[in-house]
Simulated assay, not measured.
Amino acid sequence: MNKPKVYIDGKEGTTGLQIYERLGAREDIDLLLIDEEKRKDVEERKKLLNAADLVFLCLPDAAAKEAVALIENDHTRVIDASTAHRTAKGWVYGFPEFYRYPGEVIGQAARVANPGCHATGFLSSTMPLVSLHILPKDYPLTCYSLTGYSGGGKKMIAEYESGEKGKDLYSPRIYGTNLRHKHLNEMRKISGLDQPPVFCPVVDDYYKGMATTIMLHNKYLLGQPTAKEIYHILMAYYAGQKLISVRYEEEGGMLPANALAGSDRLELVVCGHEEQTIVTALFDNLGKGASGAAVQNMNIMLGLDETTGLHLD
């Protein structure tokens, strides 16, 4: 049987490089590579896009849409890592743990939209609680999300790693202060909430890792569950999953945002008491928040074990 042909359009970007790192040594796929001098040549890209069985798009939104338009056959399947298609008709949202049988949804899809990093952290805690009718759809949710600077791409990485960076780069920086972050559309639509959360992203002086937290008043939830009961609900929801785990933090300890840097797993940490709860998703913004998730989706689309080639430490 022929190996599936896989092409990464935009391999030079942060997400593309991380996907390539996970695929480069694999012998179960045939990785198509573009000549470095032709990587911006539309005709050469078009040839590879149409030769591949599966394509990763690691491009800005407009370029991702243009790349899809270059595909002129009905066999090339696409995983788009940009924001362009996450709420678009005809595209499957690539969060396997949200489907009872991901092989029948993502596995059969021709077009898969890879989730955003902040959206991944938010949805991992919110989606189960909304779908189980524990969190009301009209709940006025708030969320903050800490991320390492690699999430900002090459320009931000260079800014932080410059020997002449300004003093403001040595402290956490709140951004998206217009409250219109590009992940909000998918956060609202995929979660099923009536309105997007008030969302506060924060970038800090470390390379990678995320801590995305939602905050809940338990008395407004169905059945008024305690924090410990919410932990058990999320444990049951994710039972048997290979890449998402749940734990309860009883001691009130600190949660480092880079705890899962280098891993493709995600851990939900539930904290609180009878009246209030916070749920924090710890994961790598380049792992389960981007490239690791994209490779997980590829594995499912190709009928392979979803963890093949991923970092599970």
Rank of each mutant, 00 (worst) to 15 (best):
I71P: 05
A64P: 05
L234V: 03
I233D: 12
D28Q: 06
G166D: 11
I8K: 10
E274A: 14
S125N: 15
G262N: 08
R111C: 11
H85P: 09
L243Q: 08
E250V: 09
T308Q: 13
D9F: 11
I214M: 02
A211K: 15
V269I: 14
D313H: 10
S291V: 08
F122G: 01
Y238G: 00
E249G: 12
S145D: 04
P201R: 00
R22L: 14
K137I: 04
L48Y: 13
V6R: 05
T213S: 06
E267C: 08
E104L: 03
F283V: 00
T147F: 07
W91C: 01
L169C: 00
L268A: 07
P196F: 01
E267Y: 07
S82W: 03
T142S: 06
S150H: 07
L243T: 14
S125K: 00
K65Y: 06
L141Y: 03
A261W: 00
P60R: 03
A84S: 12
P225M: 03
A293Q: 14
Y220W: 10
D30W: 15
H181R: 11
P102K: 08
R39N: 06
L132F: 07
A64V: 11
T76H: 10
N114C: 15
A158K: 08
E37Q: 15
D61P: 06
G24H: 03
D30T: 15
L221F: 07
G176K: 01
N114H: 04
V279Q: 15
L255V: 04
V295K: 07
D53F: 09
I29N: 14
G103C: 07
D61G: 15
G13N: 10
R247I: 08
I19L: 08
A259K: 15
E229W: 06
G262H: 13
L282R: 04
P4T: 12
E12W: 13
N258G: 05
H75T: 14
G287W: 07
I233C: 06
A69S: 10
N218V: 00
N299I: 00
L304Y: 08
A69K: 11
M1E: 11
E44L: 01
N73D: 10
T76C: 09
D30L: 13
V78C: 14
M215L: 12
T308I: 07
K89L: 12
A67W: 15
